[in-house]
Amino acid sequence: MSEISLRIDGESVAAKEGMTVLEAARSAGISIPTLCHHEKLEPFGGCRICIVEAESRGATRLVVSCVYPVEKDLVVRTRSPKVDRIRKTLVELLLAHAPDSPELQKLAKEYGSDRDRFEKEASFCVHCGLCVRYCAEIKKKNAVGFVDRGVRKEICFIPEIAARECNACKECFPLCPTSYLQACFVLTEALAFPLASAGG
């Protein structure tokens, strides 16, 4: 594996080929905010919060750092007025769905997002996919998945698998940035297998 050197926020960072910009930054102790990223999981590029400015061969572009591979002499800026503005709006859009999520509130404070900028549509799920991907990639159980698409997209437990696997695992619960996952599980449990959980 060849070493690639790039600059992130003015610092010279050495990275291995195939690493993403986010991984390179984190290995150098530079923090980039994320919502849908998890080190054990494949990059997803869903939340776009980790967007950064990347400059190569004189051109500056906005790229999503968790899915953008490092390249030689790339100049990355993790904070700039443009990046901050985009993150501010992204958080505002997500806050319309999950206004009281602690993680979103933290980001909102950092980037000055207005909690009430967009009309509330409390679906609670921010489609980060952490639960779905964790269950599929790490646990290989696929007890929870996405259904539908666009504005109607939501997570959904497969009752038969959930009844068998979930009570003993629940490892996805702490991953959820909004606690909607727990609510979804309890609802599935109440509808599909109330007795199994009560020990009956």
Binding site: C135, N142, V144, G145, V147, D148, R149, C156, I161
Partner: peptide, 12 residues
């Protein structure tokens, strides 16, 4: 194919 995936496609 995991049922979750089939279900995602069938609803998509």
């Amino acid at each position: 194919v995991p049922l979750a995936r089939t279900q995602h496609i069938a609803t998509f």
